[in-house]
Nucleic acid binder design. Structure first.
Lengths: 343, 343
DNA sequence: CTCATTTTTCAAAGCGCTTTGGATGATGTG
DNA sequence: CACATCATCCAAAGCGCTTTGAAAAATGAG
């Protein structure tokens, strides 16, 4: 059932039927309802490709997943972000498309995705420091939004981000105020921009307190449970183990907790732990009482906002660049306490 | 840069250029390389919508996410499955599209997604018992594959599934052999087909051993960490608490572990735990030594296979229905041990 | 050198939609 | 009643590609 067929059935032209269905004013209301009824009756649905061809819009938003970082797509944080975005897309009649693209040709992928008319806009996730993809997208003139920011990139661009620096500074400050001096940072991958900012916040708090951080207590890697566990185990074996640990993700914090448990240590008494809590749906930080003291910011909500901003951008390509900086909340649970006295 | 323009530059017809680029034999090899060179030079990329219009194929696979079960898309298991599928899609030049569809009109969504020509095939995830979507898709004649199966559905369909019944029977048997009699099952949502099968396997093992399961020890809900924690806490408060717990997901098992820890119980000594391990990338079940004794089956791998099967189906719509039953492995870790003696 | 055959290329139709630029008839005005 | 105005509707062009049916050029056989 296509437009032509439907218009024949109705004894109207394709023009009129098309206009009736798309809400144009130059069609008699009686005719319009007749058309709508017939469309519903015959289950008519405009072919999205033909529509796209004619209008030049695809009503699809693209997310390009690097194949190399195998884990990106599978990262629960990524998942929650996308779930948020999907909600907004649905509300605005956009579909969401994923393309797996080899890292080597990320530019190629974006270019082909957009040029060939598959998507109206792109979401760039997990920006690194000096992220090259940003200028690629800028040059191409594709509407896009970055989840996060990229230190070192000069071109202006739309972004939404959590104030990572401030929230980690605050969390570190909190631990210092509790008397901790040996604090470990179990961070995300070093080349990720958010990891840098968190590290900066961490170090700033140390500076402000006039103490120096021990490089042996700074680690970074992909934020899995295993990584949190292994790193914590390693650190506990040090001659001078940390009295507090700051983890960049609740997932690695779970690994940390496992390590502590295995070593017979009690969180909040023997050692303090703060995690960054993205409010992952399947990994909530407790119910009433938080499991971990945490810097909290819903990544799902960020996804919703990002999608909104992107859609705005698509509708107004020439507006000045927009950005949105979310502040993380510091929620205090039982995983933190005063630094134990030196024995 | 489109076909017309490119062909003008080359002084050839659109036909020839199109054929040269698509590898048709009726074009001179010299011409072909000339065309390819020009295409590369000018960064020509066929418009995917126009191509789709002309060929009737979209080279896109659809995944429809129910909006109601907010968590589906965000479920790490879902994520890993999709990541696997994405790999296969990429290798076969398919893109992947997600649509958020209201539960109420799931049929509508499928129908519109497919009718309007957006996708060439659909992956159906998380089938329930008597899943209505299956017959919808069958009737529509859409190529599709089900991840899981649906008890009660008569129409034949393509599926890929883990042998849930057998693996849970085996795991339960294993616990019974260790002397456990009060075994809890912390299962997934009851209306999910996989949860039913696991439950059946669980009960079958009891039957085979000639003992009866305590209904108070059977629970089901969405498999979050919180759920695992809360349920384990509840059960430990019983007059006659379980000596072993079988968890349907490593995520809820982590919650169980937290509950045990809070209650000062040691896994494997005071209480045994077995989890189903989907080999989630961010939640590996330990490295060398498994954290949990587990029934193991990579959901990511299942995603890859599912995508392959779907693509085969798209290419051969009339082949007889296919299916693939994966067996889960039982890996033994330190979370299980002989049932403690009655005190 | 001619005619049949094969190779190579092309013009044009078609995929299903939107949209431009009229046409048609009804209505209002002087 | 002639003319301008407005509300409706329509024919046809165009979006960028593939593919059919045919023509032109090259090749081979006799």
């Amino acid at each position: 059932m296509n437009l032509k067929h439907l218009s024949e059935i109705l004894g109207l032209s394709q023009t009129t039927v098309s206009r009736a269905l798309n809400g144009y004013p130059e069609v008699n209301e009686g005719t319009r309802s007749r058309v709508q009824a017939a469309a519903a009756k015959h289950g008519y649905r405009p072919n999205i490709r033909a529509k796209g061809l004619a209008t030049g819009r695809s009503m699809v938003i693209g997310h390009v997943i690097p194949t190399s970082s195998q884990h990106e797509m599978v990262n629960p944080i990524f998942g929650d972000f996308v779930a948020g975005a999907a909600r907004t897309y649905a509300a605005n009649n956009y579909d969401m498309m994923f393309t797996h693209a080899p890292d080597t040709s990320i530019e190629e992928s974006y270019r082909s995705l957009f040029n060939r008319g598959a998507v109206d806009g792109v979401v760039l996730q997990g920006p690194k420091v000096n992220e090259p993809r940003i200028s690629v997208l800028s040059r191409m003139g594709v509407p896009f939004i970055v989840h996060g920011r990229s230190t070192g990139v000069q071109t202006p661009y739309d972004w939404i981000d959590v104030n990572n620096q401030r929230s980690f500074e605050r969390a570190t400050q909190f631990l210092i105020d509790l008397g901790h001096r040996r604090i470990a940072l179990i961070n995300g991958l070093e080349d990720m921009d958010f990891a840098q900012r968190r590290r900066n916040g961490f170090l700033t708090a140390f500076e402000n307190a006039g103490i120096t951080a021990d490089p042996a207590l700074l680690r970074s890697a992909e934020m899995t449970e295993i990584y949190g566990h292994r790193t914590a185990c390693d650190m506990l074996k040090l001659d001078n183990p940390p009295t507090a640990i700051l983890a960049s993700s609740i997932i690695s914090a779970i690994g940390v907790r496992r390590a502590l448990e295995e070593n017979g240590l009690k969180m909040g008494r023997d050692i303090s732990v703060i995690a960054h809590d993205d409010e992952l749906s399947y990994m909530r930080n407790g119910q009433d009482v938080p499991i971990f003291t945490a810097t909290r910011s819903s990544v799902r909500h960020a996804g919703e906002l990002a999608a909104e901003m992107l859609i705005e951008r698509i509708n107004a390509p020439n507006d000045p660049p927009k950005s949105c900086l979310l502040e993380a909340e510091l929620v205090v649970g039982n995983s933190t306490g005063p630094a134990p006295q030196r024995s």
